[in-house]
């Protein structure tokens, strides 16, 4: 199950630039860290974050192991029309976690 904290205004004025903050529950295991038996803990990181707004990509990011555990991303977006914002995080095994939010634009 996707556990993410998303901060997005529920309402915005048309043309307003809104700030979005996202944080996903994820260990961001680097693949460089040895466990207590001396072997490297396999890499398990989010590699790609994509934010789409009514189907159009408005922001995305490529993440490397240097991004902290529970990856936090903040970015901006112009509120153009009411609709759905989809947040998708894909890990290095190809698994994608998705969360959506609605926005009302006046």
């Amino acid at each position: 199950m996707t556990r993410a904290l998303i901060n997005i205004p529920q309402k915005a004025k048309r043309g307003e630039v809104i700030e979005i903050k996202t944080m996903l529950s994820h260990p961001m295991e680097t693949g460089f860290r040895p466990s207590s038996d001396g072997r490297l803990v396999p890499r398990d990181i989010i590699e790609k974050f994509v934010c789409t707004y009514n189907g159009e990509v408005v922001f995305s990011a490529d993440l490397y192991p240097a991004v902290s555990a529970n990856p936090f991303l903040s970015f901006n977006m112009v509120a153009e029309q009411s609709g759905t914002i989809v947040f998708a995080w894909t890990d290095n095994h190809g698994k994608t976690q998705v969360q959506t939010a609605a926005i009302q634009v006046e």
Binding site: V17, E19, T30, V58, S60, L63
Partner: peptide, 22 residues
């Protein structure tokens, strides 16, 4: 590499934030 942000005109403002390991 740490992170690459991809912005678009619909980003509205070129301001981004994250947290990294050092």
């Amino acid at each position: 590499e740490v992170l690459t942000f991809h912005l678009t005109p619909r980003s509205g403002r070129a301001q981004v934030a994250s947290r990294m390991r050092l």
